[in-house]
Amino acid sequence: MLQIVQTALELGFQYALVAMALFLSYRILDIADLTTDGSFVLGAAVSVTLTAAGHPVLAIPAAMLAGACAGFVTAFLQTRLGVPSILAGIITNTGLYTVNLMTMGWKSNASLLRADTVFTLLRDAGVGGAWYELLLSASVTAAAGALLWLFLGTRLGLSIRATGDNRDMVRSSSVNPAFTVTVGLCIANALTGLSGAVVGQYQKTVDTNMGAGIVVIGLACLIIGETLVGRGGTGRGILAVMAGSVVYRFIYAAVLNTRIVPIECLKLVTALVVALAIAAPAIKSGAVFQKRRLAAGRRGAR
């Protein structure tokens, strides 16, 4: 039981970085960034490849840089070349598939057998006892969250937040929205790359398909977190994605162990939850409309 809780917490914090990236791109910049699936695998691929070569620590910033590059391509497509934002993400994502294969030496998966990872380095140093994996995952995510929170309070961070809120106003504050979108997407995909890097070293394996649906799972975490913690403020949003991601992994663990729904169905359930949560306002106003129409009809019949 403890083992299940521990694993759920570890995965929760590792994947919270993806939810944090989506908080930045989807919630703050108001862009559905579909680069996420690809940049997650890219981060993992870079991380595992460099770890296999004996550089587990260097692998982490390298993966973030790779993620940021992917974000830059998406941003360039939409801000300079006029590609619609969703399509820009899909295009980059498709291209990344090849890049990811290339990173892994033209194989569709790669494993670390006995190479040192950041996790084993910590264990061998004797830090954290039996909880070293959780300690590392939680610290990385907490540090990234704190840095993101600090950044969003700076002048550049404010410009990025305003870009998603009112692009006209950003322009009239002498800031180029193309620039702020680019910086925002680079940071978001660096976070996704970081998530992939940590997950890759944790699982000691990377597979080209490990990113499939990550963007929807990240959105689910974001929505769960916002339901629990509430919306408003950047600090609250960052805490919300962490909470949401941990809760999602607990739900995942519960489903895995109790088989309430077959585990194969979890992606479908996740997709339904996300679709319903995002559709909630439209469903609500539709219900109000129907109710009024029915009420008016009844009055007319009388």
Binding site: L158, R161, A162, D165, N166, D168, M169, S172
Partner: peptide
Amino acid sequence: LRGTAPSM
């Protein structure tokens, strides 16, 4: 509404 960012 055009000159200000509402959620900030």
